[in-house]
Design a protein around this nucleic acid. Structure first.
Lengths: 335, 335
DNA sequence: CTGTTAGCGCATTCAA
DNA sequence: TTGAATGCGCTAACAG
C-alpha cells in the first residue's frame, strides 16, 4: 500500500510474466480466460493502477481531452463544459479546461499549448480566425461547438431557424419595425444571426433597424438602451440573452417597461432567462446536447484515427414565448 | 518537423550530451551560460518540446492540478474555477475539471480518481464528510475552498462576519422579526451561516424565524415563498443569492413586492444579483480571490513538500446594500 | 560544469 | 497462449 504497485508486482503474485499482465488490460481477448481472471482478481486485490505516464510514453496517448471556452463566467458556457466533461468521463477521458478570457490574441497559443497535453480538443465558440482553426485542426484531433468553418468538424446550432421563429413570432404579434441589437464581430454566431435576421425580416416584409455592435455582456446590453429608444422600433431582437437582460434592466431605469412599451426577445435560453422577471422570450439552444454530441464525435475520431464519424446536422432551436414579448398596440391590462 | 524532437536531437545539434540539455531545462543554473544559451536557441529553433509523459515517469509529477466542483451551472462556481485555472496556468500547471453534479455519494470516488492523475487538488465546497476529507487530504496534496475541516488546508470565507453585517443592516432598518431561509444540510456554509444567524440575531435582541431547508437553487427559493409569507416576518435572510432570487420571483407572482412588502437579503453576490431588478442586497464573497489564494497555497504545498505554507485567514466579506432591503414601515414613495 | 550510466513502468515486438 | 527482450524520452545519480 505504501509504494504503488507495478505491473511486475502483479505478475510476480500471479506467477506470470509482466507482458501477460499488460495484455490482460490492453488486449483481454488475447489472454486465456483463466489466467486473465486470476490476474484481474490479483490486480484489484493489490490495488494495482496502471501508471498513466508509462503507458502514455509508449502509446503517445494521454487519456485526456481539452476544453477551451472564451469565458466561463458567461452563463452560456458552463452547461456546455459540464456536459462535455461528463461525457468525457463516461468515455474514459479526463477533461482539461482552459478559459481564454475572450482574449482573441492569445487564444491560438493557449489552444495549441493545451493541444500538446491532450488527445483531442473541444473548442467552444472559438473566436480565432478560420485560417487558424483550419491550421490547428489539421494538426490535432478537434471538434468545435457553435462555430462553422469549412473542413473543420463541428457541432453547430441552427441559428437561422431560431431567427426565423423569432421573426415569425414578432410578425404574428403585429410588429413591423424591428430592431436587431448586434453583438461583437468576433462572435461567429452573432454574424450568422444578424445576417439571418436581415434576410428573414426582409422576406417577411418587415423593416429592420440595425443597432450596435455591443459587447455580448449585461453591460453591453445596457449600453444599447439609448440607441434602442431612439430607433422608434416596437420590438428588438437581441444577439443573446445576457445582453437582452441588460437592455431590459437599463430600459427600466429609463422608465420604459417591457413588454408594455417595447417587446424584447433574446437568444440562447440561458438559465436566468426563465428566472428573471419579466421572464425573457428567447430561442432555446440545446447546449447540453451539443456538448454530448461533440464529445461523442471526438471519441469516435480518436478511435477511428481518420475523420470518419458522422457529424450531426445543425441542432434544432426552439422559440420560447415568455413574458417580454406582446402584441403591438394591445391595451394594457388593468393593474 | 514531422516527428517530434527529442532531447537527443537537441543534444546532437548542440554537440553536448542529452543530460546537459535536460539540465538546461530543469536546473538552468547548473549549466554554463554559454552552452545554456546555445541549447535554448537550438531548442526553439528545432521546436523541441519536452515530453511530459517521459518526464512524469521519472519525477512522478504530472504538472496538472485537479479542480472539483459540485455543480458548474451553479453561478457561484464558475468564477472560482476560472480564477483557479488561470492562476494554475500562470504557475505552470494545467487544470483538470470534474463536476460531481451534487452527487454526494460519488464525490469521494470522483475526487480520488482525479487525485491519481494530478499533483494536487482544489476542492470547491466539497459536500463529503469530514472524515473522507481528512482521509483524502492525508494521501494527496489538497486545498479546499469554502469548507472547514480540522487538519485540512482550506481557503475559507468569513461567513460569520457577513451574517453579522446583514443582522446589523436589518436592525438598522428597524426590522425585528426576521426569517432565515436555509439551504441544504449537505452544504457546510449553510450550516455555518444559519448557526451564525441564530446567535447574532439573538445577540442583537431580534427575533428569528427559521424557514426551510430548501434546495440551494432558484426553484428552491421559489418553494420557500409560501412559508415565508406565513411566517409574519418583515425581512428574510436567505442562504444564498440564487435562492433569494427565486424567492423574490415567486413572491412577485403572489403579488408581494420586494422591498415594499418584504425585505430580502441574499448571500454570495453572484453576478446576477446586481443585474436583477430589484438588485439584490447581499453579502459579497471574494470568490475570485479565493481561487487565487487556494492555487497559490497548493503550489507552495507542492513545492515545499510539507504542509508548511501559511494559509490566509478567513476572507473578509462585505455587505452590499442594493434594492431589496428597506426601512421597515417607511412610507412608500409616490409612484 | 559536463558526460556516462541506469532505469522510471509499460506495451510491443519476436520467439517459443 | 505466454515469456524474454527492447525501448518510449527523460532525469538523477555518479564520475570526471
Amino acid at each position: 500500500m505504501s509504494k504503488s504497485m507495478t505491473i511486475r508486482d502483479v505478475a510476480k503474485a500471479a506467477g506470470v510474466s509482466p507482458a501477460t499482465v499488460s495484455r490482460t488490460f490492453v488486449h483481454p481477448e488475447k489472454v486465456d480466460s483463466v489466467t486473465r481472471n486470476k490476474i484481474l482478481a490479483l490486480a484489484k486485490e493489490l490495488n494495482y493502477r496502471p501508471n498513466a505516464a508509462a503507458r502514455s510514453l509508449i502509446t503517445g496517448l494521454t487519456g485526456n481531452i481539452g476544453i477551451v471556452v472564451p469565458d466561463l463566467t458567461n452563463p452560456f458556457f458552463p452547461t456546455i463544459v459540464r456536459s462535455v466533461q461528463r461525457k468525457a468521463e463516461q468515455l474514459g477521458y479526463s477533461a482539461l479546461l482552459v478559459d481564454t478570457g475572450e482574449d482573441v490574441k492569445h487564444e491560438p497559443e493557449l489552444t495549441e499549448n493545451l493541444a500538446r497535453q491532450v488527445d483531442g480538443l473541444v473548442l467552444c465558440s472559438p473566436r480565432m480566425s478560420d485560417e487558424k482553426l483550419v491550421d490547428i485542426s489539421s494538426r490535432y484531433p478537434l471538434v468545435m461547438i457553435n462555430r462553422e468553418v469549412p473542413e473543420v468538424p463541428a457541432v453547430t446550432i441552427d441559428n437561422r431557424s431560431g431567427i426565423a421563429q423569432e421573426v415569425a413570432h414578432l410578425k404574428a404579434l403585429g410588429h413591423h419595425r424591428i430592431g436587431y441589437v448586434a453583438g461583437p464581430q468576433t462572435s461567429y454566431s452573432c454574424l450568422i444571426r444578424q445576417q439571418a435576421a436581415t434576410e428573414l425580416l426582409a422576406d417577411a416584409g418587415l423593416e429592420e433597424v440595425s443597432i450596435g455592435r455591443f459587447e455580448p455582456t449585461f453591460d453591453g446590453g445596457r449600453s444599447a438602451a439609448q440607441q434602442v429608444l431612439l430607433s422608434s422600433v416596437s420590438a428588438v431582437m437581441v444577439y443573446n440573452d445576457v445582453m437582452a437582460l441588460g437592455l431590459i434592466n437599463q430600459l427600466a431605469q429609463f422608465g420604459v417597461k417591457v413588454p408594455e412599451d417595447l417587446t424584447v426577445v433574446g437568444y440562447d435560453d440561458i438559465e436566468f432567462s426563465s428566472m428573471s422577471s419579466p421572464a425573457l422570450s428567447t430561442v432555446h439552444v440545446p447546449r447540453n446536447d451539443s456538448g454530448i454530441l461533440a464529445m461523442n464525435y471526438l471519441d469516435a475520431l480518436l478511435r477511428q484515427g481518420v475523420n470518419g464519424p458522422e457529424l450531426p446536422p445543425r441542432l434544432p432551436t426552439e422559440f420560447i414565448f415568455r413574458e417580454t414579448s406582446r402584441r403591438l398596440g394591445s391595451p394594457l391590462v388593468a393593474q
